[in-house]
Design a protein around this nucleic acid. Sequence first.
DNA 1: TGATTGACTATGA
DNA 2: TTCATAGCCAATC
Length: 115
Amino acid sequence: MDYAPETENFFVKVYAVVRLIPKGRVTSYGAIAKYLGAAGSSRMVGWAMNGAGKYPDIPAHRVVNRSGLLTGKMHFGSTTAMQQMLEEEGIQVVADKVQNFKTVFWDPLTELGPS
DNA sequence: TGATTGACTATGA
DNA sequence: TTCATAGCCAATC
C-alpha cells in the first residue's frame, strides 16, 4: 500500500470529532489528537484538516492551537474569514486569538468521554 | 531515496 | 515572559 489504511481512518476520526464541536465552541489540535489516542501527533490533526477543506461539513474554523490562536486562518482563503465565522457563532476573536478560550474550549475527552 | 515542510505541543534557557 | 529547540508523523519536493 502506498499509505497505511489506519492513517486514513485517523483522518476520518478527526473529521468526525470536528463535526461534533458544538456551535460557539472551539477545541485544539492536541485535544483531538489525544482523544484519538494519538497524543503527540497533533501535527497529524492539522494535516488532516488540510484535507478537510474538501468537506464543507467540517467546521475547521472551530479548531485552533492550544493558545486559542487562529493559526490556520490562512487556509480559509481570507485571514478574516475564520475570525468572522467564529464571531458569527458568538466567539470573541481579537488579534486572531479566541477570547475567553478556557470558557469556549470544547474538550472531546471531557464532553464525549474517554471511552 | 533522502531531505524538507507543516493548520502543533512541550520543555528549557 | 519570550525565544529557541526537540519530538512527533505524514505528505511533498
